[in-house]
Structure formats: structure tokens, C-alpha cells
């Protein structure tokens, strides 16, 4: 999987490394900004009320 991505990135090794870092950061950003906020309420830490309003 990662080998496939690496082979398909353009440029020389340095450009590939740079692109991989950018890609990783983008994935982390999407996770923190969209995926985790969606997943987090499914965990029990949010239930602090007595009537589930």
C-alpha cells in the first residue's frame, strides 16, 4: 500500500519525501478536524446529564 503510493509520487527522492510529509499532515488534519469530532460523541465521555437532553 505505502510502497504503491511511494512509487506513484512524482519527482526524485526528496520531492517524494516532501510530498509524503504533506500527505501525512493532510490526513492528520482531516482526522482531527472532521473524523474524530464525529467519532468522539459515540464514546461515553459525553454523557454527563441525567436525562439525556
Amino acid at each position: 500500500m505505502y510502497g504503491w503510493i511511494w512509487r506513484h509520487l512524482p519527482g526524485n527522492v526528496w520531492l517524494k519525501a516532501l510530498l509524503s510529509i504533506v500527505l501525512t499532515l493532510a490526513v492528520v488534519y482531516v482526522l482531527f478536524q472532521y473524523v474524530f469530532p464525529w467519532a468522539e460523541p459515540l464514546l461515553p465521555f459525553n454523557d454527563v446529564t441525567v436525562n439525556d437532553q
Binding site: 500500500m1 510502497g3 474524530f36 467519532a39 464514546l43
Partner: peptide, 25 residues
């Protein structure tokens, strides 16, 4: 190789999620 890569990915995801819940929130 694919299976191990998947395992590493899932592990990283879990660690990131824990960081999100404990620290980032």
C-alpha cells in the same frame, strides 16, 4: 506486507484518536 501495513495504520489511527480525546479536546 499489506496486512502488516494495515495493522500499523490502524495502530497509528488509535494512537492519534487517543491523543485527540485526551489532549486535543
Amino acid at each position: 506486507r499489506t496486512v502488516s501495513e494495515l495493522c500499523i495504520t490502524v495502530g497509528t489511527l488509535i494512537v492519534l484518536f487517543v491523543v485527540y480525546v485526551l489532549f486535543w479536546t
